[in-house]
């Protein structure tokens, strides 16, 4: 019999630390299988942000470094410049990338540093218990917006793909999701494309995963997927925003 599917070789067999139904697992698996298919597992260094994303360090068999909250792009830029032969990726959440690390993200993108950023947008601070993130949708309730996000008080959801697309430095920016098989396939293509941009030395690349947080959203995994399709994707449209 021909084997048509197996676990990516870089993923440990132990159970990852993510909540049931959390799409961090899907993103991690896609990234690992893309690295495997591009034959980059041995060359890759991963820079972890702070928050739930730091969990992947435990089950991805990659060289990895944990960074202070928000600083992943700064650390990654330095690693890449000191060791240009290394494929440098970051794995960051919305608070990490778009709030506390906004300057680091923008400036690495603007410098066109040749790194690949994976951005998991689940519209809240997951690990700390579901507070408002820069990407929290309007009217969405979080532990720090108990009456819903109100633009007059809290501002608007931050569209990082659009924001970064205003800069000249990035060479590839795409937004994907993992709610169903067709989207998972597209996500993997985007991840491979982003990594290929780095291999080709084209500069800054980013893939945003529109993700979920069933635990803090107070939804079942399936309901959370429905929420992504009905609400998240309206605010965060999928697609390729930059491809040079």
């Amino acid at each position: 019999m021909k084997k048509v599917y197996s676990r990516p070789i870089g993923l440990h067999r132990n159970i990852n630390g993510y909540c049931p139904g959390c799409l961090h697992s899907a993103a991690g698996k896609i990234i690992m299988s893309a690295l495997e298919e591009l034959n980059l597992l041995e060359k890759t260094a991963m820079v972890d942000g702070v928050g739930c994303c730091a969990n992947n360090n435990n089950y991805m068999d990659l060289d990895a470094i944990g960074t202070p909250h928000g600083r992943a792009c700064a650390t990654a830029s330095a690693i890449k410049r000191c060791s240009p032969e290394t494929i440098v990726i970051t794995y960051q959440g919305d608070g990490d990338l778009a709030s506390i690390g906004l300057a680091e993200t923008m400036m690495a993108a603007n410098r066109g540093d040749n790194i690949t950023v994976f951005f998991i947008n689940n519209a809240n601070y997951g690990m700390t218990g579901g507070q408002m993130a820069p990407t929290t949708l309007l009217d969405m309730k979080t532990t720090t917006t108990p009456f819903g996000r109100n633009p007059e008080e809290h501002g608007y959801p931050m569209d990082m793909c659009k924001v970064l697309s205003t800069l000249k430095g990035p060479s590839y920016i795409a937004r994907v999701t993992c709610t169903d098989v067709p989207n998972v396939r597209k996500a993997k293509e985007a991840v491979k494309e982003a990594l290929q941009h780095q291999v080709d030395g084209k500069g800054f690349s980013m893939v945003e995963f529109v993700s979920n947080c069933p635990t803090n959203w107070g939804l079942t995994p399936l309901e959370s997927l429905k929420f992504i399709k009905e609400h998240m994707l309206a605010e965060y449209p999928l697609g390729v925003y930059r491809n040079l």
Partner: peptide, 10 residues
Amino acid sequence: TASAAMLYGA
């Protein structure tokens, strides 16, 4: 803040 994080990476 970023410079020190860069130093860490280097």
